[in-house]
Design a protein around this nucleic acid. Sequence first.
RNA 1: GGGCUCUUAGCUCAGUUGGCUAGAGCGCUUCCUUGACGUGGAAGAGGUCAGAGGUUCAAGUCCUCUAGAGCCCACCA
Length: 886
Amino acid sequence: MDGMKLPKAYEPEQYEHDIYALWEKSGVFTADPHSRKEHFSISMPPPNETGTLSIGHALFLTLQDIMVRHARQKGKDALWLPGTDHAALAVNAIIENQLAEEGTNKHEIGREAFLERTRNFVGDSRETMLGQMRAMGASADWTRLRYTLDNALNRCVNETFVKMYNDGLIYRGHRIVNWDPNLETNVSDDEVIYQEEQGRFYTFKYGPFQIGTARPETKFGDKYVVMHPDDARYAQYKHGDTFEAEWINGPVTATVIKDEAVDPKFGTGVMTITPWHDHTDFEIAERHGLDKEQIIDFHGKLLPVAGEFAGMPIAEARPKIVEKLASKGLLVKTEGNYRHNIALNERGKGMIEPQIRLQWFVDVNKPVIDWKGKRCSLKEVMQSVVRDGDIRIIPGRFEKVYFHWINNLRDWCISRQIWWGHRIPVWYRTDTDGKEETYVGDQPPTDESEGWHEWEQDPDTLDTWFSSALWTWSTLIDPGLAQDYSLSLNDLLEKSPDFQAYHPTSVMETGWDILFFWVARMILATTYVTGQVPFKDVYLHGLVRAEDGKKMSKSRPESIINPLDVIPKYGADALRMALIMGVTPGNDQSWGWDKIEANRHFCNKLWNIARYIEDITGDKTDREGASPTAAADNWILSKLQRAQKKISGDLDNYRFSEAYDTLYHFIWDDLADWYIEASKTEPNRQLLAYLLEAVLLLTHPFAPFLTETIWQTLSWGNDSVLAGRELRDTLGSDSRRAVEFDELQTIIKEVRYIIKALQAYGVTLYYTDAALLSNNAEVVKRLGRLKAVTRVRDGTGLYLTNTRYSCWLDIDSDTAQAYAKELAGKHSAQQSVIDRLEARLANEDYVKNAPGDIVDQTRKQLHEAKELLGGIEQERKRFSGLSGRV
RNA sequence: GGGCUCUUAGCUCAGUUGGCUAGAGCGCUUCCUUGACGUGGAAGAGGUCAGAGGUUCAAGUCCUCUAGAGCCCACCA
């Protein structure tokens, strides 16, 4: 063992950093759009620059890295384009929190200072996160690192906005939006989450009606009562009737409205509406052309319409309003246990107050896109590409979820009132008479006309998903070309080599939780701008939950696993494999420390296999000259061939867990426990070296650091990196010789079993003339832990019943008697196998309907079972007849 | 209200188009210093695949229903 290069224990922390640096230096991660190889590409979902990476990021980095490394091994030119996201709202919420803690706010420090501070924050985050990606072994092409606020990407955002505006797909309008008074911005429908709350439900007298509400504070301006047109209780009231009613701040004139949106079974079947602060009410008002009045201001306080309550925050005003209505005799009843949902902003958890505001929207229903020769709306294109199979979603059940979301999709509100993000490329100016002019363009307008004030850019920014939606192609635009404003967006696409080579990307790998936010919107924007789908396959992984199966959450800091805490102790490879082991697409997994432990052991196992082979082969590294001689040699090669084919096929089909499982058992069971042990009798040194190389390659996508460390330490690669090597076809083997080893395994297993059961150690195995046994006597002796394996003319002792070869263990009859019971059990088990097989073959329908090869297989099984039963019976007879010697 | 997923060994989970005696990791029992690995090796124990019905020569796998767990979407004043 002296002079070995591989030290006794694998300590990942000692190697990982240097190995990563070596890869980067080697340039194997850098893609070449001009390569004649088949291209393969993945856009890395850009993590939000909000601090550090989570275990969920570790999962996606692992999955994508496996795909990319596997693609390289199969001889493809693979691009994995990394990047980060400015995460407008999420980052904005963090900075505003910081400011609040410092006792200030964004208005006090101003827009520029706010942006400067934000840039510093995300800059720090980015450095941390890129370091974490490297620590996971991510083989990304760092020469192409992108950021959603890069100039080139910003240009793509603006160009897309302008194109959509010119096509009439982007419009500005007064619509009801989800307003967050805390962050002072609106958010899209998808960013609203609902939380169940116990509240009170009040019923008030309103003229001749009774109306129910959980929100009395919105009721000041109510002047419409709405009921279902078919509600017989209110048949005497006609649509448009008016009446006088005493209300919070005095008498009002109310109008009767009949609308089918009202559920007659809920409450009294009558409601008043507040169109300014409720989505459903807004729609009713729109249908009937009713007035809308703002009751609550954008900071969550009541407006002058509330009279004496004006200026009060909602929570304070509510009980006082109820009190006042009660004192006027208008409160009919109060129900205490009313369960209803309150709307919150997913970011920052601020209460959402619907408001009508002038905002920018993407029209998803306007049919202005030429798609496959038809005029389609954005919605229709989104449906068509998945329905027609241009895009495949894995697992397939998410296609249903996707369609359901699109069916319910409303126009997408893309403007935000926060400062961090892509500013809306729209400018306004007014003339001295107050006439307004709008300019929409990628670059600010330069003309100045007399009588007009200066152009002012829209203060709002775009929803962060608007820029993310362009990610697969905006990142492939050549940054140099993007500075040339004489080129159109189409020119940029056509002239950018990366776009031409790598788009559509091969696969989008991301979590199911952002199927709507991101995946759907990439499809929307990319098909529209480029005429291509953004990716061919979508692979959706599940969430990594805490050990107790619940979500990891900041409110339970102990539940959060930080990859950087795991890696130094266990190695990135163990973490990677733990994250894919036993995990299926779209299903969540729970974090388990024992999985990580198991995989550290696995890494150690492979390390020791390498050490052993290094020890045996010494400097002999002539792997090219390897060829099989022993039965075991042929057997392990056929196993390797099968494993390689299975793993490769499984990876091609996104079956990561199965690929891993095959690899694990090939290495541990077949290679280490059987082949290496068997080879110790007479090592085939070149073949051992060959096998190590093959196994390092096969394992590399899963455990890149470990395999590269072994490769480099042994310096087998003449300065090449394992990460740059391609898979090769497995060395050929003789299948008949391979099967011989299967038979030897059967014999050895039975020997082990009997020895263990009878506690009879150091016995001799007898066999009659059989080349298989005589050629492999040493192997059987070693693996069966026998004293000797000896050829005899006629054997005595305990006869082996699992093999058709005639073998006996030299065990004295007293000891052997203990095995008689075992033999009886074996006999009945074998008999029931035979019964079952015979019954199956006796079934005419089976023989008639089942495929021929299945039936043949059954016949063969029956034949073999009968042969073995014969051996058992013979042996039992001997047992019953014997008294002294066997 | 609509939809999805899960229920398989003590625990955590695989099981691709239906086809040998249903698997893995961890845990458990017994034995073993065998030329790399005790982070190891060998031999085991442990499951009526949630329940009921159906389709089929054949069902953990397909269909229907039931029970339990989780999730998504919509949202009623």
